[in-house]
Amino acid sequence: MAAPLVELRGIAKTYGRGETAVHALKDTDLQVYPGQVVGLLGPSGSGKTTLLNLIGCIVEPTRGRLNLDGETVYDGRWLRSDLRRLRLEKIGFIFQFHNLLPFLTAEENVAVALDLAGVPGAEARRRARALLDYLEVGHRGATLPSRLSGGEAQRVAIARALANRPRIILADEPTAALDSGRAGMVMDLLRRLAIEQQAAILVVTHDETIFGRFDGTVTLRDGRVVSSG
């Protein structure tokens, strides 16, 4: 088997300190391999979002070691100074609420991620359009997010997450705002990506209708992995 794209060793996260400290995540080990779609399950407050934020280098771990795509990025401290660059190149985020930039059109929302990565303007636009077509929202390219339906907005957001062909995709409740038909489509899409681009995909969800579509699931309770398989 190939090397894991995401690897956590004894990662823990404590918010605050002293009396009010919250141990959101306790010594966690986790590995996700290329081509895998892993579901993160567990009740509210169990630490799912925290785990995603740690992998996304948005939140600093309290201890442990984090490897992404073969590179150790955290080992008791950050080993990379340009975490935003790392995110830009390697990680795609899909949010529960689509988080499109309200002042950019659908196409520009996708193009901006390419633009930030240094893709020239015309090329960025061409690729953005191709991605939107691929996600079947090409006809909405000139529309502002406030005029998109929930499903359209989520697909634009996915297009943006995929723009720089990240090898790691982190999705926090990507189907929460969608009906079950759309939810199924999004999952099919993620599945296809995992295979076509050999990406590692982590999906936080409460949505029982998609539980069966994962290659594996990790269940958290009170900051601990209680089952994985």
Binding site: G56, I58, R84, R85, L86, R87, L88, E89, F93, N99, L100, L101, P102, F103, V112, A113, L116, A117, R160
Partner: peptide
């Protein structure tokens, strides 16, 4: 604020 947070999240540098 939210848009700025999103920009930072997807990798925009401070200068942007």
């Amino acid at each position: 604020v939210k848009a700025i947070a999103t920009l930072k999240l997807i990798g925009a540098p401070d200068r942007t």
